[in-house]
Amino acid sequence: MWQYIVKRVIGLIPLILVVSFVIFMFIHLIPGDPARLIAGKEATIEEVQEIRVSLGLDKPIIEQYFVYLKDLLTGDLGYSIQSGAPVSELIGERIMPTLGLTFISIIWALVVGILIGVVSAVFRNKWPDHLGMVVAVSGISLPNFWVGLVLIQLFSVQLGWLPTGGADDWKSYLMPSFALGAGIMAMIARFMRSSLMETMKQDYIRTGRAKGLGGNAIVFGHALKNSLIPVVTIAGLQFGFLLGGSVVVETVFSFPGLGRLLIDSIQFRDYPVVQAEILLFSLQFILVNLLVDIVYSFLNPKIRYQ
């Protein structure tokens, strides 16, 4: 098991290099001159050129990439054009709220989604199933910014129970994580349902019945683990969308996280910040994929023993 994990982590290094290169190149292809942006509208060509040299922007692009990579490894992400603060500091302030938000969202989405999926599959075509699937379809079809606005209207404006925004205490996490997780929860519920129903048709389920096992022992002892295998894959993919969704939800709830920071820095063409954030999102995505594979191998002994 450990061997497997170590092997996978080492295998990620080239991937991360490629991703960082692609991000770097794309940022540099965007029209707009950061040196001019820093220097301001009134600056002379000489002044701009001076800034360009001081930032290393006059060097060949490949060389710039290696400098960037070297800085990256020492934890130097450059300085924000907008505020002049180190990018690592800006991200450091924002990363914990966003991690907390995504973590809470994915956990509740997984727990509730799996639960609804199992109940729907066990009671297929009866009322709990219909109810569960109505919930799931709503979760998929309602956009999260709309859910967010409705929640704010109801719980903050009308009832005054919850803050409209910020990330000050646990209360301010409730509505954003609900809005962010709803779609994923719905997706997981639907996959869980069809996966469990498919598993229940397998030969080994019939074997379980022939042993004299009852319904609960069959579902929880034999079917659940098998049916989780495809669900884990879907959950991992959904997590990627969750990163994108956090940008929208953080904006709706004025949540001080990475998503908001990204929007702000894109508007200001704050390239160092944008670049660092995109790299961070990509890393997160890669790590989630790794996590999915590890969970997958844990569920499926065939993979573990290869």
Partner: peptide, 21 residues
């Protein structure tokens, strides 16, 4: 009765056992 007094084996040994247990 099932699995106790009265038991059964099936045609497909490859799929009749649970792969994850």
């Amino acid at each position: 009765y099932r699995g106790n007094e009265l038991s059964m084996i099936f045609q497909e040994p490859m799929t009749s056992l649970n792969p994850v247990l």
